[in-house]
Nucleic acid binder design. Sequence first.
DNA 1: CATTTACGTAAAGGTAACTTTACATTTATT
DNA 2: AATAAATGTAAAGTTACCTTTACGTAAATG
Lengths: 71, 71
Amino acid sequence: MQNKVEELRKCIGLNQEDLAKALKVSRQTISSIETGKYNPSLELAFQISDFFKKPIEEIFIYERGCENEKR
Amino acid sequence: MQNKVEELRKCIGLNQEDLAKALKVSRQTISSIETGKYNPSLELAFQISDFFKKPIEEIFIYERGCENEKR
DNA sequence: CATTTACGTAAAGGTAACTTTACATTTATT
DNA sequence: AATAAATGTAAAGTTACCTTTACGTAAATG
């Protein structure tokens, strides 16, 4: 899943460490999310969403497999 | 974190097993989410969102601590 | 050139999310 | 009363998320 955390973070002139502090997670967590090592938990996604004041869907891009429109 | 999975599921007349199959997870995962045992991963939250055709924020209610409007 | 700042990454460990299997309970049906 | 359908739950195992500590590197600064 792609995300715009790095872009949004740089947009407001923060480094990873400061964003990490603001979100109360480790810098490695931010780094790992930005580099796509793993996705945040739903809770952390909400915190990030709140911080940037954007909906989760605008920050995290879920790649929908074009599998005949499930359902 | 609260969620409306059970409500939305019943609204379309599905049982936990059928929803689980549609989402390709186990029935226990659905049960655990509905009873609040744990939150889904962000990926599963997106799948659930897609399935019910509602944004994540309308299905999962993140309890924001009233901590002086972080940031 | 030496130091600082920012970032990536790796190892080791803890907890959360998810699995399969299985059993118990409740509600409905026959 | 017996059976089936739907749900809750528990145990044991795997993988993902997140932590602390730490090291390497590249770019900027003194």
